[in-house]
Simulated scan of single mutants.
Amino acid sequence: MDFYTIWESAHFRLSQSYDFRFPGYLFVECHSGVRRLNDFGPGESEELAAVLKLGERLLDLLIRPERIYVLKFGESDDRIHFHLIPRTAELLKSYLDERQGSPPYNGALITAWLWANAGRLGHSDADIQDFISSAQRMSEQLTS
């Protein structure tokens, strides 16, 4: 298991983002290299649902976000993968300090803003490591 990995199975890995300095920004990566949901083999769809549920549960318990965004991609890496992004009150405030907005908020615009500004939000390597350590311990409890 590498520094960022929180939980791993034969088919999937749940990890803290290695691209964005934001505790709780999670990746769900598929080991098999499939490009579409229809390409999953037996049991993989059910396991994907379980790992997405695990990621969301970890965020609810450890971050307590107001919303959790789930995005499916396959651009920079052809393999299907998902981003789970905790939209906290603090993230929303930082976004609104620079942008106009009122409810209902646009999650896509907030996500794009986070991608451009994650480094400015002040999260340290220690913040990231603390989240990873807590998420690893919690995932062991939730999956055993």
Rank of each mutant, 00 (worst) to 15 (best):
L14A: 14
L14D: 06
S15D: 08
S15H: 12
Q16H: 14
Q16T: 12
Q16E: 14
Q16F: 11
Q16P: 14
Y18H: 15
Y18R: 15
Y18E: 14
Y18V: 15
D19M: 14
D19E: 15
D19A: 15
D19P: 00
D19V: 10
F20Y: 15
F22A: 09
F22S: 06
F22I: 08
P23Y: 08
P23G: 09
G24E: 06
G24D: 06
G24Y: 07
Y25S: 03
Y25R: 04
L26V: 09
L26T: 04
L26P: 10
F27R: 00
F27C: 06
F27Q: 05
F27T: 02
F27G: 03
V28L: 03
V28G: 00
V28K: 00
V28S: 01
E29I: 12
E29H: 09
E29P: 04
C30N: 11
C30H: 08
C30D: 07
C30T: 12
C30F: 10
H31N: 08
H31M: 06
H31Q: 10
H31K: 15
S32W: 09
S32N: 13
V34T: 09
V34K: 03
V34D: 02
R35A: 02
R35V: 02
R35H: 06
R36A: 11
R36I: 02
L37P: 02
L37S: 04
L37Q: 05
N38H: 15
N38P: 07
N38K: 15
D39C: 02
D39H: 03
D39E: 14
D39T: 01
F40C: 03
F40Q: 00
F40T: 04
G41M: 05
G41L: 07
P42F: 11
P42V: 13
P42R: 07
P42H: 08
P42Y: 08
P42W: 06
G43Y: 00
E44Q: 07
E44I: 02
S45F: 04
S45M: 09
S45V: 04
S45C: 06
S45L: 09
S45Q: 11
S45A: 13
S45K: 10
E47N: 05
L48Y: 01
L48M: 08
A49N: 08
A50V: 08
V51R: 00
V51S: 00
V51Y: 02
L52T: 04
L52F: 07
K53T: 14
K53G: 13
K53D: 12
K53W: 10
L54Y: 03
L54N: 01
L54E: 01
G55C: 06
E56C: 06
E56M: 08
E56V: 04
R57W: 11
R57L: 10
R57I: 10
R57Y: 11
L58C: 04
L58E: 01
L58G: 00
L58A: 03
L59I: 07
L59D: 00
L59A: 00
D60Q: 14
D60K: 15
D60I: 10
L61G: 04
L61S: 09
L61A: 13
L61V: 11
L61P: 00
L62F: 10
L62R: 05
L62C: 10
L62G: 05
L62M: 10
I63L: 05
I63S: 02
R64F: 09
R64E: 14
R64L: 10
R64Y: 11
